[in-house]
Design a protein around this nucleic acid. Structure first.
Lengths: 207, 207
DNA sequence: TGACAAAACCGAACAGTGTTCGGATAATCG
DNA sequence: CGATTATCCGAACACTGTTCGGTTTTGTCA
């Protein structure tokens, strides 16, 4: 069976459409890294992809829709980045630390992306339901890893997210490019696990 | 000696100036609470104080200067709020917890103010050197209280700020008006103090 | 190939923003 | 009162996101 000519047409057009769509997104990331997340301008973005501002509106409904697509893309990148660290390996203290280090590495690697994914810094922007679902999916992985470590209960999980997001945020906003808070991560995880009595240390491994 | 008439005049004028200046600031706070911190509009703000936008520029150099004055005001409020809790009283676990609760209370009492003081949510805004000095002054108090508890060293202090700012931020952005992370505060402080071996608990007071 | 339909693109405009400038108004002084 | 000075505002500039109508390009069909 041959595809109907109409379908072929649609495919070609659609291919081209999605091509420039992703080109717009790539350029949006680059522009945001240049001028800051909030400095994204439709006219400037259009200029960089060889268009005028109104043309962007046939690819995205609004500027917030661009942020939304970037948001979704960012969380997909996070999922990819963490992929290997979320397997069914035996959860040990060291593996947990590795996972957290890997996660924070992702966060500090691109502060613009971090702002978009984890902070509410764009005035009117809120992710759409679909994009938010991707975010929840990516974050559920980490909570699953935690419960695999024998840590259960909302309180412990809230403490975990509060502690780690706090250290990460301090790192990014108060010592970007450095590792003043990053080097506290291992210690923080020990503190946390000791407190909740999970994954006991081997004898004599205190301090 | 009588003051020269010129001085009297200047006083009168200056009094009136500072009066409307603080009226502008009050209305700016109110407006921000209505439309969000980033939604502050010079024309709307002017309308609320019975002026037109250009007139505001004889009281503040720019919109950011208004944010700056608010920033400073906010940290002065923090200082006032914490005043009593920073005295030379003996530092106990319970007093430390009280102080932290009091601090977080201040944060969640006005999320607009919290955004301005602790998060970098306004695109171009950075506090001036003078206002930043007020902020440092207010935050130094807490670090002094911590060292009074026998906790020394940059690492411990960074861990402290990371932990508490993390819990506070989660509270405000993920459960505004609730106390999901607030009720973890006492436990978090116990966790922290135990880990650093400060202010030991009384015997048998574990859990 | 040429005609036709649809998609892509853009110029102009609208309403909004922060900000500046020159002149009008009001308050204070000698 | 007249003169001075502080206060205030209308108009404008450059920018923003966004919409509309019409032009240009593209792809498909007879």
């Amino acid at each position: 069976m041959f595809e109907s000519s109409e379908t072929v047409t649609t495919d070609r057009r659609q291919l081209r459409r999605e091509s420039t769509r992703s080109e717009i997104l790539d350029e949006a990331w680059a522009l945001c890294r240049d001028v800051g997340l909030a400095g994204l301008s439709m006219r400037e973005l259009a200029k960089r992809v060889g268009l005028r501002a109104p043309s962007l509106y046939s690819y995205f409904d609004s500027k917030d829709a661009i942020y939304d697509a970037m948001f979704r893309q960012g969380y997909e990148q996070l999922r990819d980045h963490m992929g290997d660290y979320m397997g069914p390996q035996p959860v040990t203290r060291e593996r947990l630390k590795e996972g957290v280090r890997h996660y924070v590495e992702f966060c500090v690697a691109d502060t613009t992306r971090y702002q978009l994914l984890f902070q509410r810094t764009i005035p009117g922007f809120e992710p759409s339901a679909e994009s938010y679902a991707v975010a929840v999916l990516a974050l559920e992985d980490s909570s699953r890893a935690l419960s695999a470590a024998g840590i259960e209960g909302d309180a412990a999980l809230d403490m975990w997210t509060g502690l780690l997001s706090g250290l990460t945020a301090q790192q990014i906003s108060n010592d970007p490019g450095g590792e003043r808070w990053i080097r506290l991560l291992d210690d923080a995880i020990d503190m946390f696990l000791d407190h909740y009595g999970a994954l006991p240390r081997k004898k004599g491994s205190r301090k």
